[in-house]
Design a protein around this nucleic acid. Structure first.
Lengths: 225, 225
DNA sequence: GACAATTTAGACAAGGCTGTCTAATTTTCT
DNA sequence: AGAAAATTAGACAGCCTTGTCTAAATTGTC
C-alpha cells in the first residue's frame, strides 16, 4: 500500500493556508451568529480570525459566499454529530431508565448545547426566512432524518418489549421535546447549562417518557427467546 | 352604562398622532424581527409605517430607543395574552382530555404561534445576548411566572384527583414542551401552522401527558364531596 | 539561497445608514 | 378662519462597510 501522500491532493503550499481557511470559517461562524448577517462585518471576522481583510476575500469571494460556506460547514458537522450520538442509543438496555438518561445527556451535550448546535439554531432562527433555500439541506437531512432514525430505535425497543407506543414518530419528537423542556430558558439566553442541570433535565424527561410509554412491568421485559 | 369616551384620556391633539405612534412601533417590530437590530434601518421602518423618517425620530429619538420601545411593547402584550389564556385553564374539567386539548390549542394559537410570540422568540434569540438587561423583564415576568401559574393549576387538578404528579413545576414545563413538540420545525422556519396541525399537535401532547400523569381511572375522578 | 505562492497593510471609490436641520405643508384644536 | 402642533421632503455631514487594488513582506518549496 502506498503511504497516504497528503501533499499530492492540492497544488501544495497549503499548510498554513488551510489553517487560515478554517480559522476564517470559525471566526465567521462566531461573528455571524453573534451579530446576524446584516450586523456582521468583514473586519470583525478578519480580526477575530487573526487574518487580514484581503485574505478573507481571497478565500471566499464576498460576504454572501462566506456566509454560505459557514452554514454548509456547520450543518455538515452538526449532522455528523447527531448521527454519531444516535449510534449510541441503548438498543439492548440493561437498565432502561438509566440508559435512556445517559443517552439523553449525550444528546444534549453533543448535539444541542454544543457550539454547532447553538450556532445552527440561532442562524436558522435569524436567517432561515431570508435564505430558505440555504437551509434546505439542513431541513431535509437534519431534523427529518434525526426524528426518523430515533423513531426507528424506539420502535425496535417497543418490538423487543421494553416500551409500548402507537406512533414511534410522535414518541421520538416528544422524547426530544421533553429532553429540552427544562433547558429552554438557557437556550433562549445563550447560556450553556451545567452538567448538573443537564442531568436533572434528562432525568425528568426520561421519567415522564417512561411513565407514558414504559411497560407496566418495566423491570423484567421478556426479550423474544 | 356611560358610553366609553375615548377622547378624554389624553391631552388631545393626538388622534392621528397616536395612530402614527402605534404604526411606527408595529412596523419597527416587523423590521427588527425580520432583519435583526443591525440589519434593520430607519428608512425601511418609516416606509413600512407609511411615515416620514423624521417622524420616527420625533417619536422615539434614536434607533436604540426605538428598539427598546418595541421590546417593551411586545413583551407587555405577550405577557397579557399569556395570562388571559391561562385564565381559561379547565379548572373543573368535564372531559379532562378534551378540555386540555382545547386549552393547549388556545395556548399555541394565542401565545406561541401569534405575531407577538413569534417576534419575541426571534428577538430574544437574536438580541438576547447583546442586550441582556433589556429582556430582564421578559425573563422574570414571562416564562418564570407562566410556568409557576400553570404549575399551580396542575397542582390544583392533582389535588382534586384528576392527576397524579410529584412535581407540578416539572409537569408544567413538560406540558408546554409537549405542546410544542410537533411544531418545532414550523417555528424554526417562521411558518404559521394550520388549525389542523395545531389540533394534531395538541392531541398528541395531551394524550402523552395524560398517559404520564393521568389517574388510572381517569374517566371517573372523584371530586371531594 | 532562489523562487513562487500567499499574506499583509493601507489606500481607495462607491454606496449605505444615522441623525440633524430647514422650510414648506398638512392636520388638529379653538 | 386662525393659531398651534405635527408631519413631510429633502438636503446634509459624518461615519461605517464593502469590495478592489497595489506594493511590500512573509511563508513554504526546491
Amino acid at each position: 500500500m502506498p503511504a497516504p501522500d497528503i501533499t499530492v491532493l492540492e497544488p501544495a503550499a497549503q499548510r498554513g493556508h488551510i489553517a487560515k481557511r478554517v480559522s476564517i470559517l470559525d471566526a465567521a461562524a462566531n461573528v455571524f451568529c453573534r451579530e446576524g448577517f446584516g450586523g456582521a462585518n468583514i473586519d470583525m471576522i478578519a480580526a477575530e480570525a487573526g487574518v487580514s481583510r484581503q485574505t478573507v476575500y481571497n478565500h471566499h469571494g464576498d460576504k454572501t459566499n462566506l456566509f454560505i460556506a459557514v452554514v454548509r460547514e456547520i450543518t455538515e458537522r452538526a449532522n455528523a454529530g447527531v448521527f454519531a450520538t444516535l449510534a449510541t442509543f441503548p438498543d439492548q438496555p440493561r437498565d432502561l431508565e438509566a440508559d435512556l438518561i445517559e443517552f439523553a445527556m449525550r444528546l444534549n451535550r453533543n448535539c444541542i448545547c454544543n457550539r454547532d448546535g447553538k450556532f445552527l439554531r440561532k442562524l436558522i432562527q435569524t436567517e432561515g426566512e431570508r435564505y430558505p433555500e440555504l437551509f434546505e439541506t439542513w431541513r431535509t437531512d437534519g431534523p427529518g432524518k434525526t426524528w426518523a432514525a430515533l423513531a426507528a430505535r424506539f420502535a425496535r425497543l417497543a418490538h423487543a418489549g421494553f416500551l409500548e407506543m402507537d406512533d414511534p414518530d410522535v414518541a421520538a419528537r416528544q422524547f426530544l421535546a421533553l429532553v429540552n423542556a427544562d433547558l429552554q430558558m438557557s437556550f433562549m439566553l445563550g447560556i450553556t447549562p451545567s452538567e448538573e442541570e443537564l442531568r436533572t433535565a434528562a432525568t425528568n424527561a426520561v421519567r415522564t417518557f417512561l411513565r407514558a410509554y414504559g411497560k407496566p412491568a418495566e423491570n423484567a421485559p421478556s426479550p423474544p427467546a
